[in-house]
Design a binder for these strands. Structure first.
Lengths: 346, 346
DNA sequence: CCGCTTTAGTAAAGCGGTTTACTAAAGCGG
DNA sequence: CCGCTTTAGTAAACCGCTTTACTAAAGCGG
């Protein structure tokens, strides 16, 4: 008599109950029913039913070297912004028959560990969402070399062998700027993010391009840099500073929607009103922004997630195709804080 | 000569390179180094390094019947509310050495499938976050009977064999009501959720209790029920209806923060102002609520997640302990829309 | 130097599936 | 009735790791 270690119902229990071989049960499981009597199939299926059989993905994964699982690494979540990618990615993954292993990475060491873990779990592919800083990518190269496709979201990687999805920061900022100048604004300030961040540089580039297109000159006094993660205090100070300039700006582009909220409150504290006295726009289009009626540049995070998983799925099927780089536009979402509606109906 | 199917570096490659047996490599991997020469250990470790060996969690999972993975099912996400549980749960899971498999379930059939999938993936435990409706739980019983612990968050399950974390809806509503009556309000309306939902019933219960405590009588005209998921239109109508009563309320408790935002806007459209003419409070404390300066009852979703994963980890270690039921308080977060600050500094 | 225990390490049987190569029986044309 | 192909199903190797039971060698007290 064979002694069982676990109480799990296995494929051989089913085979025994149905009076067929293990192979046949396996075939039934995988839909290879072409060469199988209707009666045999029935017997197998009712045995499964009766024993309440649940095939082990783990065993199957070992045998097939496919886990039907994808990994998603979210790095440096300071805001719920990147979480917006999770829902669409999970949906598309499930639709394609994959599960999603989620890892949050708070810093670079964390990310390396997350990636290593996903590698050990033998995911069939992984996606990395991060701030747009360039950084060391050797661990990702190694993963991809090991046969696990990697797709990057907002990582703006210079190495081209990864599939990646980015968004057009420069174009987004240029379009708010165009919007403001069309509304007649001439002095437009920008609160940019940390200076060393690629997204900051791209935004400033869009800012300069927008100015030039409108025939305006660049005024350093209207450009504030600073850290996103710093307390709201820094941003309040910047706003106060801008408003106490000899020629204060009549419009402000904030580095993200939270900063915009802080700036709006600061402006109102100086006795001015938004948008009557100062127009404000943010960057992000976070879920709460519609409740603030905030005009903002939308970062297409959810869309980027959708595209990224499509890239991964494609590469799983055709590993040898060339890496694809997608650049998504950042549409301007016009609400009340830019004053456009007031202008439209004077 | 043995032909390899995959290019994966396996434990036997390492053993070969180090000139030891597979068992020894396995022992080294698992820290069973007590009976092992320093030199052997060194040889094994440098062989691992050199070959860039990554042990397969899949194979290990099959051998040990532990996957070091937990499942999280989020049901019926209409708002980003429940997403708040993800970050703390992932953090605690990683800290305890587990990875997190995330599944979003849009409806009941979806949930059953998600649970079945997690079962097949042989997670070591799973957590279900859902709206508080009682519902069929046979699939969860089966999972737990199969040896996978299940913890419920906000499911308010009557069956007691599950670990579960809930929050005190009644108490939360009672405390806003207390706050309003303390501020002198006598006519306080409530927009409750769908009538058949447990959370709605609990909130109405808290509402009645609060009225009674303040010596006020229940007025049906001040109680609106309706569906959360209905378009904002329904809630606007309710707000207009309330404000056109012969004796309109001077304070309103909304069924969630988004409804509160809608109601505030509707009230302002009637020419009244918040909180000067009408005080408003929400329920949820969503991330955006602070930017609306919304007074609200906080649903401790993140805290519930943390507690739930602690329950799961405990049960994985001690499967036979009795199920634990935790009820978290819902603290009142006082901001501007209730008018308390105005009252405090007249 | 002998028998016993301890030490360092190994062989081999699983874990629960998939898959390849094989076989027995049935079908079939001549 | 014979040799061939097709059909329905099976045996057994294998995926990469853990773990138990075992062994050879070393240590050691007398």
């Amino acid at each position: 008599m064979v002694v069982r270690r676990t109480n799990r119902v296995t494929i051989s229990d089913v085979a025994l109950a149905a009076g067929v071989s293990i192979s046949s049960v396996s075939n039934a499981l995988n839909g290879k029913t072409a060469a199988m009597t209707e009666e045999t199939l029935q017997r197998i299926q009712s045995a499964m039913q009766e024993l309440n059989y649940r095939p082990s993905s783990v065993a199957r994964g070992l045998a097939t070297q496919r886990t039907a699982t994808l990994g998603l690494v979210l790095t440096e979540i300071e805001t719920p912004l990147f979480l917006q990618a999770v829902t669409p990615i999970e949906r598309e993954a499930r639709r394609a028959g994959y599960s999603l292993l989620l890892m949050n990475a708070r810093n670079e060491a964390d990310e390396r560990e997350a990636v290593r873990l996903l590698q050990e779990k033998q995911v069939d592919g992984m996606m990395i969402v991060s701030t747009s800083d360039p950084r060391q990518n050797d661990h990702l190269h190694e993963v991809q070399a090991g046969g696990i496709p990697v797709a990057l979201i907002n990582r703006a990687d210079l190495w081209t062998e990864f599939d990646q999805v980015n968004w057009d920061n420069a174009g987004g900022v240029a379009s708010v700027l165009g919007h403001f100048t069309a509304l007649g604004h001439r002095r437009i300030a920008i609160l940019a993010g940390p200076a060393d961040r690629r997204s900051t540089q791209e935004r400033l580039q869009g800012y300069r391009a927008g100015l030039q297109a409108a025939g305006l000159t660049y005024d350093e006094a209207l450009v504030c840099a600073g850290d996103y993660t710093s307390a709201a205090e820094g941003w309040r100070e910047s706003a106060f500073g801008l408003m106490s300039l000899p020629q204060p700006p009549s419009a402000i582009i904030a580095s993200d929607d939270i900063v915009a909220a802080v700036v709006i409150r600061a402006i109102e504290e100086t006795g001015r009103s938004v948008p009557a006295d100062v127009a404000v726009a943010g960057i992000d289009d976070q879920p709460f922004s519609q409740y603030l009626a905030l005009t903002t540049v939308q970062l297409p995070v959810a869309e980027a997630g959708k595209q990224a998983i499509q890239l991964i799925l494609r590469r799983i099927q055709h590993p040898e195709t060339e890496a694809q780089h997608i650049l998504l536009p950042c549409p301007l979402v016009v609400r009340a804080t830019c004053g456009a509606k007031r202008q439209a109906n004077p």
